[in-house]
């Protein structure tokens, strides 16, 4: 930063800084833009050369995607699995997050370790043995079976995120409610829940995105009822380009919207996960 010989080093520094910011934004946005260009162009254009850097605003590729056999089912499966993962991970994870934030109990450290440990393991690998186990119990190739694996991925985050959210609500508020005539449950319902709801929604969305994006376990555990990611992966070699791009587009758009929706919580979530 110390460009002492220049007439105005501060100005130069600011310029370099501004340029770097713009460049890094472009680094993220340009590839996304190019995917949109491809998606919003007719299949023939997508396969032609050279390409225009402007979209045609043609829905041909998307229409082809919608008509492609099994694609809409895969889309529906993805939504169903992600939705189920979202519900499961919050229902299972949030109580533990509450316990971690409100109680000191013997075994708390061990429990936290178990939660943190899950992050040190390549979790999608779980799908391998579970594939066998599922056949035995009839969960193979089902939405629920995959959602359970995705919940394993999402639930540690749900625990840590809700832990941080609950910790952000002063215990005093709950205590005040108790002294004013609430039971533990009614204090939770009347005071904690309304305050925590946006945060819970954010972590639910986060769980949704984790499941929505997951490829490996989805590909291992589903055969007939493929999710969108599994379907695209399976057909990577054979499907035409415009189908891949339209599929990629459909994968990306909800994720974009969701990250936008939870952006306020992103940092609070990860900040606490550090400790």
């Amino acid at each position: 930063m110390a460009v002492a010989t220049r007439p105005d080093p501060r100005r130069t520094g600011r310029l370099v800084y501004g340029a770097a910011v713009v460049l890094l934004c472009a680094w993220v946005l340009v590839p996304l833009y190019l995917l949109f260009v491809n998606t919003l162009s007719a299949p023939e254009t997508v396969n032609s050369f050279p390409k225009s850097f402007l979209p045609e605003m043609d829905t041909g590729s998307l229409a082809f995607f919608a008509r492609f056999a099994g694609m809409l089912d895969a889309l529906w499966n993805s939504v169903a699995v992600a939705g189920l993962t979202m519900i499961l991970s919050i229902v299972i994870g949030a109580p533990a997050g509450y316990a971690l934030s409100r109680f000191d109990f013997p075994g708390k450290a061990t429990f936290r370790l178990l939660i943190l440990l899950t992050r040190a393991f390549p979790l999608p690998l779980l799908a391998l043995p579970l594939a066998v186990m599922y056949i035995r119990v009839g969960l193979d190739d089902t939405v629920l079976g995959l959602a359970l694996v995705h919940t394993t991925l999402a639930v540690p985050f749900a625990v840590l995120i809700t832990f941080s959210l609950f910790s952000g609500i002063p215990l005093e508020l709950e205590e005040a409610a108790w002294t004013l005539g609430c039971t533990r449950l009614s204090a939770f319902r009347k005071v904690v829940l309304p305050l925590i709801l946006p945060g819970i929604t954010a972590s639910a969305i986060f769980a949704f995105v984790i499941s929505w994006n997951e490829v490996f376990a989805a590909a291992v555990l589903t055969i007939e009822n493929r999710t969108l990611t599994a379907f695209l992966l399976q057909n990577l070699d054979t499907s035409p380009l415009h189908l891949k791009f339209a599929g990629g587009f459909i994968l990306v758009v909800p994720a974009l919207v969701f990250i936008f929706a939870v952006r306020r919580y992103l940092f609070a979530m990860w900040g606490i996960a550090n400790r």
Binding site: L24, C25, V28, L29, P31, L32, L34, L35, V37, N38, V46, N47, S48, F49, P50, K51, F53, V209, W212, N213, E214, V215, T229, L232, L233, L241, K244, F245, G247, G248, L251, V252, A255, L256, F258, I259, R263, L266
Partner: peptide, 26 residues
């Protein structure tokens, strides 16, 4: 903007860069 890729699956990321590197790509 910088955190957008956080929500994008590895498969989609692969497809995005395929759009750039494939034979008729950008």
């Amino acid at each position: 903007i910088w955190t957008i890729p956080l929500g994008i699956s590895d498969l989609a990321a692969g497809i995005i860069w395929l759009a750039i590197f494939e034979q008729s790509g950008f």
